[in-house]
């Protein structure tokens, strides 16, 4: 029966999710173009709405579903999460973060259709920006009331990879709290390089914010990255082995 569920997930739910992404964009695109605002806020809100839809399909495809939330500080925040599956991108929406700027790799911007939306939403291409440019783009996003989302492992290939310190350096420079998000189960549901959606138990946990001022010294951001990684990965590894 496992294979039947896998086929149902892939062809019915996966297909429906792709149709949802495609047709909702098709319907919304003219309105977004007509009512475009300079900051891209409307596009980001639309992406939030789309992501909530994807989360619904993901929930149906899962064999278990658990969302653990925590109070988050007001104002802009840097959200950091582990990254092992393409599905991770949509999980941020579950916690009500509806105005977020993702910092992603440059190849994602070359995707037809999605690349256009990402540019319109003001997402930041990490491959083509220097640390200084990144800082000023993020500063601008914070001025527009956005949260900034990073996947500090940079790639889905190694789920245990170290957390690069860029996101934490940025939080330190802009005096923003860091909100860690642990994502467990998406790697089993849709692993890298595969397109079969397997039923898996999904557990998402938002941790209380961590503050840059608690990590002092010239390597404070590096130590914050290590500490947040430890917090996230110990939870993810425990859930994945449960």
């Amino acid at each position: 029966m496992g294979w039947l569920r896998c086929y149902f997930n892939t062809f019915c739910l996966g297909g429906a999710a792709l149709c949802w992404l495609f047709f909702s964009t098709l319907v919304a695109a003219p309105f977004l173009l007509l009512c475009a605002d300079k900051t891209g806020t409307r596009v980001r809100k639309f992406v939030f709405f789309q992501s909530r839809g994807i989360m619904r399909f993901m929930r149906w495809a899962s064999s278990g579903w658990q969302v653990q939330t925590a109070p988050v500080p007001a104002g802009s925040r840097v959200i950091v999460a582990n990254h092992a599956s393409a599905l991770d991108l949509y999980t941020v929406s579950l916690f009500g973060f509806d105005n977020v700027v993702y910092v992603t790799k440059e190849w994602v911007f070359r995707l037809p259709f999605f690349g256009y939306i990402m540019r319109a939403a003001g997402y930041i291409d990490a491959g083509h920006t220097t640390p200084q440019e990144m800082l000023s783009r993020c500063q601008e996003a914070v001025k527009n009331g956005c949260d900034i989302v990073f996947f500090p492992q940079g790639s889905r290939k190694d789920p245990q990879a170290r957390f690069k310190s860029g996101a934490f350096y940025l939080a330190e420079q802009l005096h923003l709290p860091v909100v860690p998000l642990a994502i467990a189960g998406t790697q089993q549901m849709l692993p890298v390089g595969q397109w079969h959606i397997k039923p898996a138990r999904i557990v998402l946990k938002l941790f209380p914010a961590v503050y840059p001022q608690d990590f002092t010294g010239p390597l404070g951001h590096l130590h914050m990255a290590q500490s947040v990684k430890k917090q996230i990965m110990s939870f993810v590894n425990k859930e994945n082995n449960a």
Binding site: T130, P131, G154, K164, S165, G166, Y169, P218, L219, H221, L222
Partner: peptide, 17 residues
């Protein structure tokens, strides 16, 4: 080793220490 420009700066501080 996948070190980016910010990692390089961190590495310098680590080695100085």
């Amino acid at each position: 080793l996948g070190l980016d420009s910010l990692d390089a700066l961190d590495m310098v501080v680590v080695l100085e220490q």
